[in-house]
């Protein structure tokens, strides 16, 4: 928001006013985008709900959009999404937090200049590449030899979860590291002066002080994992089912939307309309997570 300084002259020529209006309109594009997203999703979803009952949609656990008999139980897609996101978090939370602690409290400046680019490189890899990595490396060369060919196939929630975990790790690491570095030096030095070891300083001083940023980073990563499309599309297969077995092939909400767009589905058909209802569900879930993340930061932030 504006700083205290103001122009000395009160006279504002017309051009100044026009410019301000133009700048304001640019800033308002964001609001228009949000309204557009909500309007499109809600409008098209209502159209879908004329044919399919919303109760069946939100409570059903069987999904079959193109194969008869059709079934529209979105929980089958939601469970696939949540399963993949949960696996991703199981991997990314420890990896990301350990990396953040390492960068904030252990690494020397020289080591930092080596480790930080590793994280940034992973963050910058297009997600389709991670999907490729899942089907060509994680599944055939890691999971199948490890778990046996009878227990896991080429496509699984586990393979998808692992690569999504990889891609959200840098997000957790960088936001958490920022909030750990924001903990003032004096607090660390006080603990050292009391005879604490480095690990005790991290666990009892830095970690609690940085908890708002850490929580926010995890929730944002969760939202990102739920919304990820390209990596999941290749890795988890295309079998919508209500399951918590990570070795099964599933379908996520994003992968369903992608699959419908990739196929030859006619735009007016009911399968195509279901895409908007799934989109609205997805949008609702990530919106709630993003709002919670913002609330956590505001509520638990301690400024130093």
């Amino acid at each position: 928001m504006t700083t205290a300084a103001r122009p000395l002259t009160r006279h504002r020529p017309l051009s100044e006013r026009i410019i301000e209006v133009l700048l304001f309109l640019s800033a308002a594009v964001g609001v228009v985008t949000t309204l557009g997203i909500v309007a499109v999703l809600v409008f098209e979803t209502l159209d879908f709900f004329v044919v399919v009952s919303p109760i069946d949609f939100f409570t059903g656990t069987f999904w079959s959009a193109s194969i008869l008999p059709r079934a529209w139980g979105v929980l089958a897609l939601v469970s696939g999404t949540v399963l993949v996101a949960a696996i991703a978090l199981v991997i990314a939370v420890p990896l990301g937090l350990l990396a953040a602690v390492f960068l904030a409290d252990y690494a020397s400046p020289r080591v930092r200049t080596v480790v930080k680019p590793i994280l940034e490189t992973i963050a910058g890899i297009p997600t389709i590449v991670l999907g490729f990595f899942a089907v060509n490396f994680i599944s055939p060369q890691l999971l199948i030899p490890l778990l046996g060919r009878n227990n896991i196939g080429g496509f699984s929630a586990l393979a998808g979860g692992i690569v999504v975990g990889l891609l959200i790790t840098p997000l957790i690491a960088s936001i958490s590291e920022d909030s750990m570095r924001a903990v003032p030096r004096g607090m660390r030095e006080g603990a050292y002066a009391m005879g604490a070891t480095r690990f005790e300083v991290v666990r009892k001083v830095v970690f609690p002080a940085a908890i708002s940023g850490i929580m926010a980073s995890i929730i944002l990563a969760m939202s990102r994992a739920i919304g990820e499309t390209m990596a999941v599309l290749l890795a988890v297969g295309a079998k919508p089912q209500f399951t918590i077995d990570p070795t099964e092939s599933v379908q996520t909400m994003t992968a369903f939307i992608a699959a419908i767009s990739l196929g030859e589905t006619a735009q007016g058909s009911i399968e195509f309309k279901s895409l908007f209802a799934v989109g609205l569900t997805l949008f609702g879930m990530t919106l709630v997570l993003n709002l919670i993340s913002g609330w956590v930061v505001r509520k638990y932030r301690t400024a130093y």
Partner: peptide, 12 residues
């Protein structure tokens, strides 16, 4: 908040 909207939603 827009920065947190899944990319595929922008496609819709």
């Amino acid at each position: 908040n827009l920065a947190g909207v899944p990319s595929i939603i922008y496609g819709i």
